[in-house]
């Protein structure tokens, strides 16, 4: 290769881009590493005690509430999101006015800050419907929040299915609905799953939309109408109280591992789609 002296500008740009990439990488490693290093040694059995007391600040009720909210929210958001995406990708004609309105609405929903969802959920479920602080109210709020996530990823997955699949199915005499459910949706399953799991990660990590809807009761919620804090809300309350700093680190580890694990599974599912 030809060796030549680099001009200063090139050299500066080279150093800058490399430095920026290094800064990004360091930020991630430091952030995750710091939480893990400080938190992992604090993971004690008492943190996972079944009953919460202000001594053990157990994460179990919060974990259970998180699971409860997921079980309530996903059955609302998934069918709606998948059906909307099926309409957009398979039924609607391009440039249709209704389609443009739906897209604009989904983009608007996706762009709304979570505090706005929190206020909306509070006004509708807590005050208008008089549910008070309830897991169900929180779950409904989150279902609306993740709806655009599921819609977008599902639509992308459906659009990635080659047209020849559809043409083959039509050619064999299948109708549109049969084509969608027997041919298109089954081949888009990894992508749809990736979207659902991504939505799951959003639900687990959400704090502010739940603070004024599901509330912050430290107890395990028994009925959907009970108040209960999810793991993320628990983490927030612990860190603002500042009384159990070690347990806060440990809780951060649990939350981080949970959310990142969920996202990892989502990425693996999406990659499977690309490969197949």
């Amino acid at each position: 290769m030809l060796k030549r002296k680099l001009d200063p500008l090139t050299l500066a740009l080279r150093v800058l881009t490399r430095a920026a990439a290094a800064v990004t990488l360091c930020a991630v490693v430091f952030l995750i590493g710091y939480i893990l290093v400080k938190g992992v040694p604090q993971l004690k059995p008492s943190l996972f005690a079944l009953k919460y007391t202000s001594q053990n600040v157990s994460v179990m009720p919060a974990l259970f509430n998180t699971l409860y909210i997921i079980v309530l929210a996903l059955p609302m958001a998934v069918p709606l999101g998948v059906f909307s995406a099926v309409y957009l990708a398979e039924y609607a004609k391009r440039g249709n006015k209704a389609v443009r309105a739906v897209r604009l609405a989904a983009e608007t929903l996706a762009g709304m800050p979570s505090i706005v969802y929190g206020l909306f959920g509070m006004l509708l479920f807590r005050y208008q419907l008089k549910w008070g602080y309830s897991l169900l109210g929180g779950a409904c709020t989150l279902a609306v929040m993740v709806l655009p996530v599921i819609m977008r990823t599902t639509e992308e997955a459906l659009l990635a299915v080659p047209d020849s699949y559809r043409e083959g199915s039509f050619g064999l005499g299948a109708g549109r609905l049969r084509t969608v459910f027997r041919v298109v949706v089954p081949s888009a399953v990894p992508g749809i799953l990736a979207g659902i799991i991504l939505a799951l990660g959003r639900i687990v990590g959400e704090t502010v939309a739940l603070l004024y809807t599901a509330g912050s009761s430290a107890k395990q919620a028994l009925s959907p109408m009970d108040s209960g804090r999810t793991l993320a809300v628990h983490m927030y309350l612990l860190s603002t109280e500042g009384l159990h700093i070690n347990e806060t680190y440990a809780t951060a580890v649990v939350l981080l591992v949970l959310v990142l694990g969920i996202n990892g599974v989502s990425m693996a599912a999406a990659r499977k789609l690309v490969k197949s």
Binding site: L25, V28, G205, T207, V259, N263
Partner: peptide
């Protein structure tokens, strides 16, 4: 690393900041 950062909940960022 960038995906990790994108997936990290804001409460974890907040705690790290704190």
């Amino acid at each position: 690393a960038i995906s990790l950062l994108a997936g990290t909940p804001s409460i974890i960022f907040g705690f790290f900041g704190l």
